[in-house]
């Protein structure tokens, strides 16, 4: 009897599985939650987990599982939007930075300056300047992703630009922009995807941190960091209230990192382990 072959990219599968565990219920919350996430029911406050309330209830009698589902969705959407913003701004700037001459160098020195600020501090500063709100939070998290995307895009573009098919495209009479879009970008797509996945992990942490500090989403919206902050005083009488949102953040980060590593192995054959 043949044994089934081990999975070729274990971390890819593990990452996908962990993310699915967290994100599928989150996505479900858009259409259905066990209880309305905001419904206060003082009579049933601080219940232990049961079949009715899988993760128990909080000090206001709200269903913890329902609130976590919605909070994960909120946080996830903010992170995804922030990464999209970082990529949309950072990738074109990075390609610009690959241009020869002082223009490209200038662009990259500005990126270096951006990288010199600690990410969470940058985000906190931006939120402090713009005021809290979903948009401000997305911009804050997106902003520190811009230089990271710039460097990855530039490095990739530089390695692609000296290859012969770029010269061939120029011989075919293509212009600069067309070459960047059709020949350079698809060839660095894989590393950008990996970067996006890994950046998502950092964004999830930052989002939790910001909303924990009260710099994230405004109050009626549940978010992972805020639940942690609100219920941290209960850690001794109802530890699950704090452990559950913490665990969700940890799983998000772990899942993204594993997925990112797996994607890198899968998409970049030069880095794949020798088989």
């Amino acid at each position: 009897m043949r044994r089934p072959a081990p999975p070729r990219h274990p971390s890819l599968w593990a990452g996908t599985l962990i993310l699915a565990l967290v994100l599928v219920p989150a996505a479900l919350s858009a259409v259905w939650t066990p209880f309305p996430p905001g419904a206060i029911d003082i009579a049933h406050r601080l219940l232990s987990p049961s079949l009715r309330h899988v993760l128990g209830t909080d000090p206001f009698g709200r269903d913890v599982a329902s609130r976590l589902m919605v909070a994960t969705l909120n946080s996830g959407l903010v992170c995804a939007a922030a990464i999209a913003l970082g990529g949309l701004v950072g990738i074109p700037l990075g390609l610009l930075g690959a241009a020869p001459g002082w223009g490209g160098a200038l662009v990259m020195r500005i990126a270096d300056l951006g990288l010199a600020f600690p990410p969470l501090l940058t985000a906190a500063m931006l939120v402090a300047a713009e005021g809290t709100g979903i948009a401000a939070e997305i911009v804050a998290i997106g902003a520190f992703n811009v230089p990271a995307f710039m460097r990855i895009a530039r490095g990739g573009a530089l390695s692609v630009l000296h290859r012969d098919f770029i010269a061939a495209a120029r011989v075919a009479g293509r212009g600069r922009v067309a070459i960047l879009l059709e020949h350079v970008l698809p060839n660095i797509g894989a590393i950008l995807l990996v970067q996006a996945t890994l950046a998502l992990a950092i964004a999830a942490l930052s989002e939790a941190g910001l909303s924990y500090l009260g710099l994230g989403m405004p109050p009626p919206l549940p978010s992972l960091g805020r639940i942690l902050a609100d219920d941290q005083a209960r850690i001794f009488d109802a530890p699950l209230l704090v452990i559950a949102p913490g665990a969700v953040v940890a799983l998000l980060v772990l899942g993204c990192n594993l997925l990112g590593d797996g994607l890198r192995d899968r998409l970049d054959p030069t880095l794949a382990p020798v088989r």
């Binding site: 098919f165 010269a167 495209a169 011989v171 009479g173 212009g175 020949h183 698809p186």
Partner: peptide, 24 residues
Amino acid sequence: RRATRGRRIAMVFQEPMRALNPTQ
């Protein structure tokens, strides 16, 4: 000059492994 490339003068590149875009 760009208009002459490919149309009046074309070039066959040295390394068949490197002269094609692997993603297209």
